[in-house]
């Protein structure tokens, strides 16, 4: 007890001496103290979204705040926020069909590693009005800039380009890659609300919500928070049973079928 108190005093005393030393070593940090940079915070009302039996897609609302903003820039509406909800990374296989004997069959396929299973983006304005394409590319921000790494690094550039474009296109068609301009709205000068789309087929797992702050087209701050999407109650139970107790699950499925067929016979008995 006494020792812990002594240690705490000692560390505080050491810190007093160390802070000016680091400030000297990195002279630009004291500029930050004089004029603090803007920062962004987000808060999730829940860290868990449950998929229930009536789930058919949903809107997820994320609230956030800006700190240390310049009131003049805020009044001109030159602060922009981009919020992204990124699904768990998975291996994704893209297949290409071609005609064989008049039939369309999968003839070529390539896999990509660490592809976010879903990617839902909301922005205050149309993305091209917030920053230049160059900025988005550098930050790997936006559906067209998600980094897609092929499992086969020797893939020729032409095929790679075609398959990455197809991957984005198919994910968009399934509603898993979405971008909503105007999905982020300012409630006051420094408070905002982001509405993100969750597709009906949203993957379960840990999703990462990231918020980016832009000031007059320049990226100034970022924050993130995790969100778990899981199946609820019965759905979760069935899903787990099918994965972990697959034999019993199969037997139960057969039993259920027998019982249903039998019940139908009793209800509608004619013989």
């Amino acid at each position: 007890m006494v020792f812990a108190m002594f240690a705490r005093i000692l560390s505080a005393w050491l810190a007093l001496w160390l802070v000016p030393a680091t400030a000297l070593a990195q002279p630009h940090t004291d500029r930050l103290i004089i004029q603090p940079r803007e920062s962004i915070q987000i808060g999730l009302s829940t860290d868990r979204v449950a998929i229930t039996s009536d789930f058919s897609g949903a809107d997820l609302t994320i609230f956030g705040a800006l700190e240390n903003i310049d009131p003049l820039v805020a009044r001109q509406g030159r602060y922009d926020v981009v919020v992204v909800l990124e699904g768990p990374a998975r291996v994704s296989v893209v297949r290409r069909k071609s005609r064989v004997l008049g039939m369309w069959m999968n003839t070529e396929w390539h896999s990509f590693v660490n592809v976010p299973a879903s990617y839902s983006m909301a922005t205050t304005r149309a993305p091209q009005d917030i920053a230049t394409p160059e900025v988005y590319r550098q930050m790997a921000l936006g559906i067209d800039n998600i980094y897609l790494r092929p499992a086969d690094p020797t893939l020729d550039p032409e095929t790679l380009a075609a398959f990455t474009a197809a991957l984005r296109d198919r994910k968009r068609a399934e509603g898993l890659f979405v971008s909503r301009a105007g999905g982020v709205q300012f409630l006051s000068q420094n408070m905002f609300r982001a509405n993100l789309a969750l597709a009906p087929s949203v993957p379960v797992g840990v999703h990462r919500a990231r918020a980016f702050l832009f000031k007059q087209g320049v990226f100034v701050g970022e924050t993130s928070a995790n969100l778990t999407i899981s199946k609820a109650g019965m759905e979760q139970y069935i899903y787990n049973a099918a994965r972990n107790q697959s034999l019993l699950y199969g037997l139960f499925a057969v039993l259920l079928a027998v019982a249903t067929g039998w019940a139908g016979r009793i209800i509608f008995r004619k013989d």
Binding site: A242, L247, G250, F252, V254, L256
Partner: peptide
């Protein structure tokens, strides 16, 4: 029945909710 169990055990592709709805309608 055997096929259902084997599919469930190896491929995990039996959707019991889907099957049950179809059964109710079917019966």
């Amino acid at each position: 029945g055997y096929t259902t169990v084997v599919h469930a055990a190896t491929n995990q592709t039996v959707d019991i909710v889907l099957a049950f709805i179809l059964m109710i309608g079917g019966v």
